[in-house]
Design a protein around this nucleic acid. Structure first.
Lengths: 146, 146
DNA sequence: AAAATTTAGTTGTCATGACAAATATATTCA
DNA sequence: TGAATATATTTGTCATGACAACTAAATTTT
């Protein structure tokens, strides 16, 4: 695969993203863990937030509510999460990692770190910084609807 | 949304990619054109290749064969493509733009250019160059299976 | 307080994307 | 040549992702 330089920036980023997700998924399954990249993102998010409503996860992951609802359903089905209604706001459901979920997190996190290292291999701090800046700027440029 | 800097590079790129695809899709539908970002990628690819087998498109778009097969089916259904069997290799189907497909391409292309301009707004040539370099390097870092 | 509006979450639909398996045709090897 | 392989494409399954519509509960308005 060679890039179409100067054009098709969307495709370019899209293809790499697909590859990144694929490699995260490969790495997990190579270690015998049945978790998708998206499920990992959500699991990691819940680990960071400790205890969170679906809304919190929606905001943090930038995924939409239906997507989060369905990913959570799968994580709950796997018994990696504990869900309970919020006592103050009955619309909300609060979610946190179960012991099994924590164990999975602890197994997956080093694997994710390894993939990230591989991903950044041969790139400098400056390149990293510029990359983050550009991606962030692109995001801001597109964030508003019109 | 604020980034988790220094971590979660995958999420970061993934979120921006999703937004990029969303904005391309928005832009097309705002102009009354019923085309998804992926269909646009494939249409544009076929426009560039002039006449191509599905394999050619698979290689150029880095999408997999089943995905291309299905996207082509939709584009054919919309009558934007003409498909014919390859005379030398009966396994292959050769695809090219119909007149209607060319018209759609000509309508979509300026829209895509506008989105790309918006996307890059406020970023310098150097930042662009570094970004391309980094994305390309990441792709290479992950390209090999293991 | 009652009605209107907003918010949190769910469910349905359709389009990818990854992966496995199947089919048909080519090519290579013994 | 005939068998084994390889290649091009299709089909099936499951997991997102975008979007619309819906339910239930909270908040705001009047």
């Amino acid at each position: 695969m060679s890039w179409e330089k100067g054009k098709h920036i969307g495709n370019l980023v899209e293809q790499s993203t697909r590859l990144i997700k694929l490699r995260f998924g490969n790495a997990f399954s190579d270690h015998g863990i049945d978790i998708t990249p998206e499920q990992w993102i959500v699991l990691d998010c819940i680990h960071e937030l400790e205890s969170s409503s679906q809304k919190d996860i929606v905001e943090k992951t930038y995924k939409d509510a239906p997507t989060i609802s369905r990913i959570l359903a799968k994580l709950i089905q796997k018994k990696w999460l504990i869900i309970r209604p919020d006592v103050d706001d009955k619309r909300k459901s609060i979610v946190r990692l179960s012991d099994k979920g924590k164990a999975i997190y602890n197994t997956c996190n080093p694997i994710a770190i390894t993939v990230r290292e591989r991903l950044w291999n041969g790139l400098s701090k400056d390149e990293y910084a510029t990359f983050i800046h550009v991606i962030d700027k692109i995001f801001q440029n597109l964030e508003k609807e019109s």
